[in-house]
Amino acid sequence: MTEEIIVAGFGGQGVLLAGKMLAVAAMRQGKHVSHIPSYGAEMRGGTANCSVVISDEEIASPTIEHPSVLIVLNEPSLKKFEKTMAPGGLLLVNTTLIKAKAEREDIKVVYQDFTDFAREAGSDKSANMAALGCLIKEKNFICSLEALINALDEAVSQRNRRFNTIN
């Protein structure tokens, strides 16, 4: 079993962190994992995304051409990546910021207001975490909720730890 996950959104929405948490959580549960961020100038203000592969087997390529899971936190990301998805894939759409609907009919689409959900929990900057919660509910192969929470501690740098209770 292998999942090829792309998390995409605006820079600052925490997509790289979300990807890293998934990788750490799955690694702690014995999976093979890899994580590649978009980097450099793209990170500032533009769109950011990361590719996470989680597998029972050794990972051949960490790069993803046809994601089996796509999490989009903003609209440009939906436009950019939906068409690349593997048939039968899972698409999570952040409806707080994305008014458009998915066009593909050969994939499963879950619409959730991640940003609103996070805002109610204390910080709209935690939409990434809300999306991860939704993802592991749909795909329990990836990791458990407990592993994900532990991963947050492991993946987040010391100086940002004070926000963890919100998440």
Binding site: A23, M27, H32, V33, S34, H35, I36, P37, Y39, P62
Partner: peptide, 10 residues
């Protein structure tokens, strides 16, 4: 290459 440098793996 840049992908290897930026990539995280166990």
């Amino acid at each position: 290459d840049g992908y290897l440098g930026q990539m995280s793996e166990p």
